[in-house]
């Protein structure tokens, strides 16, 4: 009962927060927030950091963290951009163009998988704490990105490729559709497969997991590879939406992704958190973001606010953990 209660109460709290933020913004910004255009722009922004948030969440569920997601996204985005710009064939509109696009996307995803694999090896086999392993690879990946581009941006992709970032299907932006599909896939993987179950168990107690016949190494490597893959998917949407890529682009997403995770109820020490909660966190953050945009807050003041919310959520978690610890004691002695 306790487990159920705390799980539901957490989801409920999140839901209430999300709705209240939504209402407050709607009331204070009449005619500006509740417009179709604003909703379209919100839903084209959600996918990028939504996918990156799922990437961070996966690592967090195992009790680790992935600080290299943005660097991974950058590197795979740059590889895709290079292929798109260098491989373009003269006759436009032929199969060659489609082939180039597919090649670019596949290469980007493969690169992101390799990045995740390296993180996984470091964490699972070498035994490096995830914070430092991914901090190191963050430097490494962004370093490679700089070396490849010599620090310059890559601009201008073919029209067809841009459809991924800015096209719509029945008024729904394509990125949103990609994101919904990915989130669904993540829900199924986490809740309905032995792998997902093992991720949660490993995150709550890696030693007991090993003693229960779970192969920690393979689960960790797969998790970080998935984390990388989601970053890779984010990168494709990202470069297609802004029609360019430069090393270091999107570094603000790292803080936002971690913020969304803790806001969405993912336990940074591992073993707890759901995609459902994460999505409520994403929506809350995006609603706030869009409100700030309408109020034309500077990016710097947004930085302050994101940081403050992150810390505030952690402080609230501190007190709620204290409370639930007490209720467990009470239950135990009854």
């Amino acid at each position: 009962m306790l487990g159920k209660y705390s799980k539901y109460s957490k989801t409920l709290t999140l839901f209430i927060i999300m709705i209240s933020v939504f209402m407050v913004i709607s009331i204070f910004l009449p005619g500006k927030f509740l417009t179709i255009r604003n909703f379209q722009s919100m839903s084209s922004q959600i996918p990028e950091f939504g996918l990156l948030s799922i990437a961070v969440m996966l690592a967090m569920l195992t009790g680790g963290i992935d600080l290299s997601i943005v660097a991974t996204a950058n590197l795979s985005g740059i590889v895709a951009a290079l292929i798109l710009t260098k491989f373009t064939f003269s006759q436009i509109g032929g199969y060659e163009e489609l082939f180039t696009i597919i090649l670019a996307i596949t290469s980007a995803l493969i690169i992101s998988l390799i990045c995740g694999f390296l993180n996984g090896i470091l964490v699972a086999y070498v035994g490096v704490p995830a914070i430092l392993a991914t901090l190191g690879t963050m430097g490494l990946f962004s370093g490679i990105a700089i070396i490849i581009t010599k620090g310059y941006g890559i601009v201008g992709f073919s029209e067809k490729f841009l459809l991924i970032g800015s096209g719509t299907i029945f008024l729904i932006p394509v990125p949103m559709i990609i994101f919904i599909l990915c989130a669904l896939a993540a829900v199924i993987i986490l809740n309905k497969t032995t792998f997902g179950f093992s991720v949660y168990m490993l995150g709550s107690n890696p030693i007991a997991a090993r003693f229960s016949g779970i192969s920690n190494e393979s689960i960790l490597i797969k998790t970080y590879m998935m984390s990388g893959l989601f970053a890779g998917l984010a990168s494709i949407i990202m470069i297609s939406r802004v029609n360019s890529i430069r090393p270091g682009y999107g570094s603000v997403y790292l803080l936002q992704a971690i913020l969304v995770c803790v806001l969405g109820g993912v336990d940074p020490s591992g073993g707890a958190g759901s995609i459902f909660g994460l999505i409520m966190g994403i929506i809350t953050l995006q609603v706030l973001q869009s409100g700030f945009n309408i109020l034309s807050f500077s990016p710097f003041s947004k930085k302050v606010i994101w940081g403050l919310i992150l810390i505030l959520v952690m402080i609230i978690n501190f007190y709620s953990a204290k409370l639930s610890q007490k209720s467990i004691k009470r239950l135990k002695t009854n």
Binding site: Y200, M201, S204, N205, A208, F211, G271
Partner: peptide
């Protein structure tokens, strides 16, 4: 507590 149980997880799990 360390090797046998996942104390934060449900009994079912």
């Amino acid at each position: 507590l360390n090797q046998g149980l996942f104390i934060k997880q449900s009994i079912g799990n």
